[in-house]
């Protein structure tokens, strides 16, 4: 069952890898945004089923973007998964306490990322 996923990450390579993983391995319909602002802009059109959101981004960071999404009249209900490179446990705990479906760590395994996302969102496994 293919889903629409929006990947937000300021690092071009990581973003392309996540997109490739979720589309080629997970078989989803994936779009990408390179900043929090671009993410919000993308939410005005066709809404995704889930957002994979980087935490540390210049300008509007992950939590700020999340707050904007939750405040958005159309997009407030979209489940969000944080993808963080942070290791400090207290930081990760703080992220978990926000209204998100889950927190995934970098570096991620592109072969299992779709499964992890699906698990967090309660989706049926769509990969082969």
């Amino acid at each position: 069952m293919s889903k629409k996923i929006l990947v937000v990450d300021d690092d071009d390579d990581v973003r392309r890898l996540a997109v490739m993983s979720l589309s080629r391995v997970g078989g989803h319909d994936v779009r990408a945004a390179e900043s929090g602002a671009a993410c919000l802009a993308a939410l005005t059109e066709d809404l995704p089923d889930a957002i994979v959101l980087d935490v540390m981004m210049p300008g509007m960071d992950g939590p700020a973007t999340l707050a904007e999404i939750r405040a958005d009249a159309n997009a407030f209900a979209i489940p969000v998964i944080f993808l963080t490179a942070g290791v400090v446990e207290s930081d990760v705990d703080r992220l978990r306490s926000l209204p998100v479906a889950g927190v995934l760590r970098k570096p991620f395994d592109p072969l299992t990322l779709p499964t992890q996302v699906a698990d967090l969102l309660g989706w049926q496994d769509t990969s082969a």
Partner: peptide, 21 residues
């Protein structure tokens, strides 16, 4: 620590992920 962690992990994510793919 948090910044170093981020700066080291981001390129590692791309390298490792690309190789795994």
């Amino acid at each position: 620590v948090s910044v170093v962690s981020h700066e080291l992990r981001t390129p590692l994510t791309s390298i490792k992920g690309s190789l795994q793919m």
